[in-house]
């Protein structure tokens, strides 16, 4: 951090002349005026204006510095990353260069929704069908996982029953579930959804259960003194108290679902970003694979930010 600030110093210095230039017309104007009356009041007004302009410039300079400070390190990081990539691709020759990848990405995204048969579709279709598959798997996981989390959190007996099983199944690699899905559904697409379901359900169950267990005793005492009905306890106390925990679970689950989808689609085929990666590998089109990696990363990032935004909305502190 300190090094980043140190590198910024020259920028801050460079900003000074610009500000001085902005001040100049205002401070010079009384002298420049040919009228010799030199009304003291006018001079005062001009001086006040100069102060205001200087003040505004100072504020602007502060804001500019903050923006530069926030943007510079990540930009520098990206620049370093891309030059390392370029260097690597130049020395080995097997990895496509950043420029080549960029042209191929521009080309891909200029026709995102073309359709030439089931195995040749635009990248837009691939992203959308991956999102849909992930959404269905994740949706089922939420539908099952959130109520289960509530039950495990509220009833110690159920929790004691479930927790060894959860501990046993949670670390299992997502793809180990694929054969079970194929056997049960006898089709590739539902099997992929099943894999997403089973691997993204755990964070939602666990976080919701923990949230329910951590509802402050004070709130429950309030509920007891007011003699609230089970329904009111559920809607007015438990649900809002647990929501931040649940949203954390949902965010982790969605991350897992998106993580798993590429691997699952590679194995099951069809339309989807994971399948597309595999297809392009078979075509030896490495640029497209790199584009796909970036696309998966960016979509994952957007999903995460969306849920963080939602979580902030339900933060009561």
């Amino acid at each position: 951090m300190t090094s980043a600030i140190a590198t910024l110093r020259p920028f801050a210095v460079n900003l000074e002349p610009e500000v001085a230039a902005a001040n100049e017309p205002a401070t010079r104007s009384p002298a420049a005026g040919p009228v010799a009356t030199l009304d003291a009041r006018a001079a005062e007004v001009v001086a006040a204006k100069a102060v205001a302009i200087a003040e505004r410039a100072r504020l602007r300079r502060g804001r500019a510095r903050a923006i530069v400070l926030a943007l510079l390190p990540p930009l520098l990081g990206f620049a370093l990353f891309i030059s390392a990539w370029g260097l690597f691709s130049q020395t080995t020759g097997s990895l496509p260069s950043p420029a080549k990848t960029w042209t191929s990405a521009v080309d891909l995204f200029s026709h995102p929704f073309y359709q030439k048969g089931p195995n040749d579709q635009g990248i837009g279709w691939n992203i959308l069908s991956s999102l849909r598959r992930g959404g269905i798997g994740f949706g089922f996981a939420a539908l099952v996982g959130l109520p289960l989390g509530f039950v495990f959190g509220r009833f110690a007996f159920a929790n004691a029953m479930a927790s060894p099983i959860i501990s046993l199944l949670r670390p299992v690699s997502p793809l180990a579930w694929l054969p079970i899905g194929l056997m049960a559904f006898k089709a590739a697409n539902p099997a992929a959804i099943w894999v997403i379901f089973i691997s993204s359900i755990w964070p939602m169950i666990i976080n919701t259960a923990v949230g329910v267990q951590r509802v402050p005793q004070d709130y429950l005492n309030v509920a007891r003194v007011l003699n609230l009905s089970e329904w009111k306890i559920m809607t007015r106390i438990l649900f809002p108290a647990v929501l931040p925990y649940t949203l954390t679970g949902v965010r982790l689950s969605l991350g897992v679902a998106w993580l798993v989808i590429v691997a699952a689609e590679m194995l099951t085929g069809g339309v989807g970003i994971g399948f597309w990666v595999w297809d392009e590998w078979n075509n030896l089109n490495v640029e497209h694979i790199i584009v796909a990696i970036f696309v998966v990363g960016i979509v994952g990032l957007l999903l995460e930010q969306l849920l963080l935004l939602l979580a902030r909305r339900f933060n009561y502190d």
């Binding site: 004070d218 709130y219 005492n221 309030v222 003194v225 007015r236 106390i237 809002p240």
Partner: peptide
């Protein structure tokens, strides 16, 4: 517990 014996808690306990 019941509302005929209302409690004001030490730490306010507002929702």
């Amino acid at each position: 517990p019941g509302p005929e014996r209302a409690v004001v808690f030490q730490n306010h306990s507002l929702l």
